[in-house]
Design a binder for these strands. Structure first.
Lengths: 225, 225
DNA sequence: ATCCTCGACGATCAAAATGCGCATGAAAGG
DNA sequence: CCTTTCATGCGCATTTTGATCGTCGAGGAT
């Protein structure tokens, strides 16, 4: 999952970035409204964290612009503690959730997780497919009850596929969602990780559709030949 | 489905081409207005993506020429971010939708899908015929609820027929819409794929009309005595 | 009319060609 | 050191070709 943070205070921004990266997200960080707006318009994000108190262009305008351009990613707005009006205005402009500063990092992560889950149409924070179970809260994966150790990238890839269970996902789409900004698109890393995940969780879990991409299916929907 | 991209910036053009190909489209790419105009006038496309900021002949003229020639394919216009006049002029000249650069790839794909769907007179992104169901968003096909695994070409062929349910489609038309520019039109691949699809989905699904082509009918509409 | 014959077109199969995706190991990065 | 990335050759699913068989329909002969 790939996140954009638009936050003008560099310390907080960087701290958030590392925290989220440790939680398994690919994170882009922007320190001003203009750049932030550009990134949000250009790249594919699964969620955006937006500070309203930005210099130059303020957060609200950025949000408004995105929505007018038809961007649909969920936006979590950060406001000052007692700014009632900001909250209202934010929701009006199309924010999906908001959080008052200062806040607990854990709270932020929890809300973010919920936003992404809802945006992908899932209702529970536990995603399952066959006897693979992925808990987005703890970041743990189990196979038939047994915990499985996945590396960071393996987890990101699996998580994205799990969030889009049943959909055919192209290799470019995967790259765009599990890596941040600067990444060379010409490589076979995706294939490598798919292989590794299959080794750990069983080959059946991920289906290859030649020329199109991959698809993760729940065996509950009996696949036939 | 076959798409024409007219985009002068080679990097963006190629990237779009591969992305769309991974989404199951046959794609022709043209880097200048003149060539683009020629292709659009000569070949049969299900949709065209047209950048307005072209060198030599500009996009608007190309669009105008096509419309005057009676070309009806849906055109998705790419404009610079804040070029209000371009947007208006574009819609005047006969564009069906427009997208401001820069944009998110997924957004483009979604709009393209919508354009093609509308152009073929369908209202939902799920196409059905008998107990065959094709979901254009996820790219999956089910038979009586059971997921069916189709290869890339099988999917393209079926998708085209589904979009033109009830219409008699000639073999040449099929070839023109599921392959791109350079393809040897003298072969029996279409027949081969029709056979394969029939094997997977049941022979009744595709009717042969001798000397004319094929037709996919919904049994709901009384087939004909 | 009915049946038969013939030609054209479509269906099917098997085998060849293509190129994608997989594995593996080495290199790089943190 | 562990994880991630890059590079290379191979195997195989997919696609394509070509050949053969089946089928439909028109038209002629009976």
């Amino acid at each position: 999952m790939r996140i954009l943070i638009v936050e003008d205070e560099p310390t907080l921004g960087k701290q958030l970035k590392t925290t989220l990266e440790q939680s398994g997200y690919a994170v882009d960080l922007s320190v001003d409204g203009e750049d932030g707006h550009f990134l949000g318009s250009t790249e594919d994000y699964d969620a955006v964290i937006l500070d309203l108190g930005l210099p130059e262009i303020d957060g609200l305008s950025v949000l408004g612009m995105w929505r007018r351009e038809g961007r649909t990613f969920p936006v979590l707005v950060l406001t000052a503690r007692d700014s009632w009006s900001d909250k209202v205005a934010g929701l009006d402009a199309g924010a999906d959730d908001y959080l008052a500063k200062p806040f607990q990092t854990e709270e932020l992560i929890a809300r973010l997780r919920a936003l992404i889950r809802r945006a992908s149409g899932n209702t529970s924070s536990e995603l399952t497919a066959g006897d693979v179970r992925l808990d987005t809260r703890s970041g743990r994966v189990t196979l038939a009850g047994e915990p499985v150790k996945l590396t960071a990238q393996e987890y990101k890839l699996l998580s994205y596929l799990m969030h889009h269970k049943g959909k055919v996902v192209s290799r470019t789409e995967l790259i765009e969602h599990i890596y941040d900004q600067d990444f060379d698109r010409d490589s076979n890393t995706i294939e490598v990780f798919v292989t590794r995940i299959r080794k750990k969780l069983g080959a059946e879990i991920i289906t290859t559709i030649r020329g199109l991409g991959y698809s993760l299916d729940d065996p509950a929907d009996a696949p036939r030949a």
